[in-house]
């Protein structure tokens, strides 16, 4: 029984939250990695693109709710997501046409593009706050839990509860669908392959008759989709605040770099590495020991490796460690 209790405890506090947060990070990191591998720069504006996607979802949610369209018990955000994606894609393409394209045609250095993306970050951040305001927006509706802790306890008779929030379930399922779609597109379709070819060897891709503008367009379509879904899921799960997305950029970059920049599989792995390390390092192990060790061996104190206050800092620490030990990341990515 103690053993099962321990497993439940780990699932409830590490496994499920880790999978959820990891999926969100992975989707974000995929966006960064794809922009990097095709357009060759680190896009600091990606966090704001995610925020923009989430904002679009919220605005559409309000619209749909005022029209009394909903998907109870699922949150309304699910129905509006496709439309929000289209809006986000449209914004990304617009930004590219007005801003990034100029530097692409000039073959600017990647640092210049990076600084340009900071300009885009400022502008988009301001635009979002201007439209929706800086405050907290909760746009979750419908049933809160797929599985309540109490139901689980009653059902299994265990002391520890296991809860699965609707947002967590949705996040994990949607991420899996999106990732499968993305990999199918990149590996099985002609356009997807041409995108990989372009990122691999730009000159030869041009010689083969691959249209660069089309590749760029598709890159932004994918990026916009990923950003919108990641941003909406994050906002749905943790409530939306424009300010948090700026701080999300770094964990996302960490995930992309840890996995190996330019490598989509790496981005996903990186996302989960970051998410799980954050949870594992800040988890209070006292209770686990309580279940797994005889009583007289259970030590005092919470047994945290680092206090929970440092949760987000862990992603930066991992980032620094990876840069120190293996700058190319887990899956050898392109060295920036």
């Amino acid at each position: 029984m103690d053993f099962l209790n321990g497993i439940t405890l780990i699932s409830n506090y590490i496994l499920i939250p880790g999978l959820t947060y990891g999926s969100q990070l992975a989707l974000g990191a995929l966006g960064i990695t794809i922009v990097y591998s095709v357009l060759r720069f680190s896009n600091f504006a990606h966090g704001e693109f995610m925020s923009f996607g989430a904002m679009s979802s919220i605005l559409l949610c309000w619209l749909f709710l005022s029209l009394e369209i909903n998907l109870n018990p699922l949150p309304t955000a699910i129905i509006v997501l496709p439309f929000a994606i289209i809006i986000t894609i449209f914004y990304c393409i617009l930004v590219d046409k007005i801003i990034f394209k100029f530097y692409r045609l000039q073959n600017s250095k990647s640092v210049i593009n990076l600084i340009v993306s900071i300009g885009v970050m400022f502008f988009t951040g301001g635009l979002i706050r201007f439209i929706i305001g800086p405050g907290d927006k909760n746009f979750f509706d419908g049933e809160r839990f797929i599985l309540k802790a109490k139901t689980f306890k009653n059902y299994t008779g265990l002391r520890e509860g296991l809860a699965l929030k609707t947002t967590q379930g949705i996040t994990i399922v949607l991420s899996i669908i999106l990732v499968i779609l993305l990999f199918w597109f990149l590996n099985k379709t002609k356009t997807g392959k041409s995108m990989r070819a372009y990122s691999d060897n730009k000159e030869l891709a041009l010689l083969s008759g691959i249209n660069p503008e089309k590749v760029v367009l598709i890159t932004w379509i994918i990026t916009g989709t990923l950003a919108c879904v990641a941003g909406t899921l994050y906002g749905l799960d943790k409530s939306y605040k424009p300010f948090t997305y700026l701080h999300l950029v770094l964990p996302i970059f960490s995930a992309a770099i840890v996995g190996g920049v330019g490598n989509p599989v790496g981005a996903i792995i990186g996302g989960f590495v970051i998410a799980f390390s954050e949870l594992i390092v800040t988890f209070a192990y006292k209770k686990i020991f309580f279940y797994f060790l005889p009583n007289y061996l259970v030590p005092d104190g919470l047994l945290q490796i680092l206090s929970t206050d440092y949760k987000i800092a862990i992603s930066f620490i991992i980032l620094v460690l990876v840069l120190l030990i293996r700058p190319t990341g887990i899956y050898k990515g392109k060295i920036i």
């Binding site: 041409s194 990989r196 070819a197 060897n201 010689l207 083969s208 008759g209 691959i210």
Partner: peptide, 25 residues
């Protein structure tokens, strides 16, 4: 058809995908 001296393949694509890219147009 043109084969450049260097960088004349797509290293992270499979052989078959490389050939397919040749027939992209």
């Amino acid at each position: 058809g043109f084969v450049p001296q260097t960088n004349n393949i797509f290293p992270s694509l499979t052989v078959e995908e490389n050939l397919e890219m040749g027939a992209f147009v």
